[in-house]
């Protein structure tokens, strides 16, 4: 028992060291450094948006509708006289919470299911994987729309949709990693030692899934931003008057001849954030050496 404990103490600094190394490699490559910078800025804006936005998201500034970008209104104002810059800033939090929390739920649920399914094997694994195969027989976007039609469009529905759509995908990735490591010597040794089930899953096997999990989480996050924005644009996601970026594009589009900036600003915001996350996840794949069959 004492030996295991000392091993864990040793393992901890090694892991943080590895994290630092990965970060260093990310920042050395110009493309992924740019991606990381975009993500950090986006994250900060999402956190402090309400304090730095000059106007409220739905504050109609009297007598200043349809104004072109100026010092007063960096991204102009929309047809209702709302400050587009403020709305984009405040919308960042929406995107981060919906896409971020949705992805987080999917990653946690997918990891647990993937670990249990892969480690346990047998009929349980068979049933879970067949069920997930059938869920994945529906293209992700279709499943999202199906759920939204059934639950009715709202913020909570969007959150649930992201979690439900991405859980099976994460679970499959984790499971295939588990299948690769569960017959390794150190895992067998721990089992023979009589370690408890949670210990086996989370202490022995889980660390090996971390590289694949990191890449998958980054990838899912960028798809989730995409999904939230697309659903908003289609009018079946977050409902007005939220400053959701996709929704803003839809509203801006209706008045594109009068206020093109109200369309361009949120569209550019979506594009920049998704490209930033993609640059990071793309580089992570090669740093962490994810085998080809787990890449998508």
């Amino acid at each position: 028992m004492g030996e295991v404990a000392s091993q864990q103490v040793d393992a901890q600094p090694a892991r943080t060291g590895r994290l630092l190394r990965v970060l260093k490699q990310l920042l050395r490559d110009p493309a992924s450094a740019l991606g990381s910078a975009i993500f950090v800025i986006f994250f900060i804006v999402a956190l402090i948006g309400p304090w730095i936005a000059p106007y409220g998201a739905n504050e109609q500034i009297p007598g200043s509708a349809r104004q072109a970008p100026s010092i007063e209104h960096p991204f102009g104002t929309d047809i209702l006289g709302r400050d587009v810059f403020s709305r984009v800033l405040l919308g960042a939090r929406d995107v981060l919470t919906l896409a971020g929390v949705g992805t987080l739920v999917a990653v946690i649920a997918g990891t647990i299911i993937g670990l249990v399914s892969g480690y346990q094997g047998g009929w349980l694994d068979e049933v879970i994987m067949r069920l997930f195969d059938s869920l994945l027989a529906l293209p992700a976007f279709l499943l999202a729309l199906l759920l939204l039609g059934s639950l009715g469009p709202s913020r909570n529905s969007v959150l649930l949709v992201i979690a439900v759509v991405y859980t099976p995908i994460v679970a499959r990735v984790i499971r295939s990693v588990v299948l690769g490591v569960k017959t390794r010597g150190y895992v067998e040794a721990a089992r023979v030692q009589g370690e408890t089930y949670p210990h086996m899953l989370f202490r022995e096997i889980f660390p090996s899934t971390l590289p694949a999990l990191a890449v998958e989480a980054a990838l899912r996050f960028s798809y989730a931003i995409f999904l939230v924005a697309s659903l908003g644009f289609l009018g079946v996601g977050v409902q007005p008057p939220s400053p959701d970026w996709g929704l803003m594009v839809q509203e801006g589009r209706a008045n594109v001849t009068q206020t093109p900036w109200a369309l361009i600003a949120p569209a550019a915001a979506i594009a920049i954030v998704v490209i930033g996350v993609n640059l990071v996840s793309d580089r992570l794949k090669s740093i962490l050496q994810i085998p080809a069959e787990l890449r998508r």
Binding site: F226, F233, A271, I275
Partner: peptide
């Protein structure tokens, strides 16, 4: 870059 752009943005 194209992968990053949602279809509704490229379309517009």
């Amino acid at each position: 870059s194209v992968v990053g752009l949602p279809e509704f943005v490229t379309g517009l």
